[in-house]
């Protein structure tokens, strides 16, 4: 489990089907804002498959990280809930 405050990157993977990691965050680096607990993975639940519990994080990204020079205000942020299996240490 990655502690709060750690830098993490959303894996730049592109599997087909029902996933809950938005495309615009793939490959982007942010900071763990809080750990939300363990939830049954919606990526399996969506298909009625056995769904293991996975740790869910809230990760905070800066607009500068997401949109580069096109950011309206680079210090504004986006927080998103990302499952453990989508994250790697950055």
């Amino acid at each position: 489990m990655t502690p709060k405050g750690n830098r993490v990157r959303v894996k730049a993977m592109y599997p087909p089907g029902h996933v809950r990691a938005p495309f615009y965050l793939r490959g982007k680096t942010g900071e763990v804002e809080r750990i939300l607990g363990r939830f049954r993975s919606p990526e399996q639940l969506a298909y009625g498959l056995p769904a293991p519990e996975k740790t869910l994080y809230r990760v905070r990204f800066t607009m500068a990280e997401l949109w580069g020079d096109a950011a309206e205000n680079p210090a504004d942020t986006v927080d998103a809930e990302i499952y453990d299996h989508w994250l790697e240490e950055a």
């Binding site: 809950r20 990691a21 938005p22 939300l36 939830f39 919606p42 869910l56 809230r58 905070r60 205000n73 210090a75 504004d76 942020t77 986006v78 927080d79 998103a80 809930e81 990302i82 499952y83």
Partner: peptide
């Protein structure tokens, strides 16, 4: 500071 929250999963 604007904080946008994207409800991507269970919360």
């Amino acid at each position: 500071r604007i904080r946008v929250h994207d409800s991507t999963a269970d919360m």
